[in-house]
Simulated scan of single mutants.
Amino acid sequence: MDLRVLSYNCRGLRLGNSDGDKAHRLVIDHLLTDCDILCLQETFLVQQDLSKLNSFNNFFFGAGESTTDFSNSIVRGRIPRGVAILWKKKTMDNCVKMIRMGVDWCIRIHLSFGNKDFLVLCVYLPYECRQNEGDYLNKLAFLNSFMESCNFTSIYVVGDVNADISNVNSKFGKHLSQFCLEHKYIMSSTLMLPHDSYTYISEAWHSTSRLDHCFSSSDTHGPLSSMNILYNLAISDHIPVSFSVKVERLPEVFVGNEGVCQSNLNWSNVTKSELRSYSIKTEELLRKVVLPNEAIRCTDPNCANMKHKVDICTFYDRIIRALIESGKPLHKVVGSSNIKLAGWNMYVAGFHEQAQVATREWAQAGRPRQGPLCKKKKKLTHARYK
């Protein structure tokens, strides 16, 4: 099964049905006829219009984030930024879960096809200038913090990241390259697109650059195929980017059952009879794991055979699944506690709420180890609440 994903900085999304709205939406309507997932940046929508993303096209569901709420203030000038993601109803109605990340520049969906799970993040990062450099680095830190704490390792990040890696003078390009190198993310768009390709045409300088990218985790780059830039749809400064994901090549994922402790076992507390049962169950389950003989016998140290990579990842996942399954009886089921603590609401509840707010702010800033947010978090969580 191939999923076709497109990314496009649309410079404004019109959701109405008037002739003017449809004319302005011509490229987007065309893209929706040729994709399963569409990621949009700079939608310029207000929060009150986000619900319309579910209904402006009969064949797609949608969700988005906005920087502007009409109920809170009067807007002067155009509405800035905003992101949205649309997915096809027919093929992915029961396979997609939309998850908000608490920011107005990024939105994600979780896709599940049997035992194949992966995430698609649609992002819009600040344009390159000296004043935006700190904000740009903070957003990269936020993405890394999320990806490291995520339960899934199969992740695609697509969108307008405003970094031209091919330009040696681009400071944001250097930041993005260093970010991917340090955290072992693969810049898929750089590897799969021609070196002289571009996704942005400057209306002021009449120059071209590649600002729209796709970078992925190490186990999701291999299933990518046929990445292209749709130059024939270049009617504004940004040009749509498309690629396909071969779902069958994604590694299998096993998610532990809720209520079962997933921490390491204390083997010193395991009795001989429990250990014997564990050994028998483990042997029984491991016997069912099929060896990928072709991949194991491969002697090429630089093997690029994608089937070998997928077979080895699947082999590893099945071993882990067998060990977790056989160890379940040795874990104690953790239930929720309904014990009421005297004085909680009077003395602790207020500090608890402040600590939660401070921790969220600290996490959204990329979990810095120093600075005012770090000091505030330590003060409210350790000094007062804990």
Rank of each mutant, 00 (worst) to 15 (best):
K378M: 14
I339H: 13
T381A: 06
N345C: 13
N338F: 10
E284T: 05
T299K: 15
K332V: 09
V289F: 12
A365N: 01
M306N: 09
K379D: 09
I339S: 03
S326F: 11
S277F: 13
F315L: 08
C298K: 03
K309A: 09
P329K: 14
T282G: 04
V289D: 08
T271R: 06
E353N: 08
S268W: 00
L275E: 00
I319N: 00
L285G: 07
H382D: 04
V270Q: 11
C374E: 08
A365R: 14
E284S: 11
S337M: 07
Y347K: 09
P329N: 04
Q262M: 06
S277K: 03
V289H: 05
P368I: 03
L286F: 12
S336K: 13
S268Y: 11
S279Y: 04
N266D: 01
S263K: 01
A304M: 15
N345S: 13
V348K: 03
V348N: 02
A383S: 13
L285C: 05
P372F: 04
R276P: 10
C303T: 02
D300S: 07
V270R: 03
T314Q: 02
A322P: 13
W362K: 01
G327M: 02
C313M: 11
K272I: 11
S273L: 06
D311P: 01
L286W: 11
M306V: 15
P372T: 07
S337K: 02
T271Y: 06
K378R: 05
E294R: 15
Q356F: 06
R321N: 02
L275A: 11
L323A: 00
F351Y: 04
G366F: 07
Y316L: 10
R367A: 03
S263E: 10
K309W: 12
Q356D: 08
G371A: 13
D311R: 06
L285M: 10
E353D: 02
S337R: 04
K378C: 14
R318L: 12
P372V: 08
A363M: 15
V290H: 03
A363P: 12
N257T: 10
K340H: 12
C374V: 06
I320N: 15
M306K: 00
E294M: 05
W267V: 06
K332L: 11
N302A: 08
R318N: 06
D317K: 15
G350I: 02
Q364D: 13
S336H: 09
R287S: 12
H382A: 01
Y316A: 10
L275Y: 13
K377R: 14
T314F: 08
V310E: 13
V270D: 00
P368K: 01
R318I: 07
C261T: 11
K281A: 06
L291N: 07
K272N: 14
R321D: 00
W362E: 04
R360T: 11
I312R: 03
E361N: 14
H352K: 14
V333R: 07
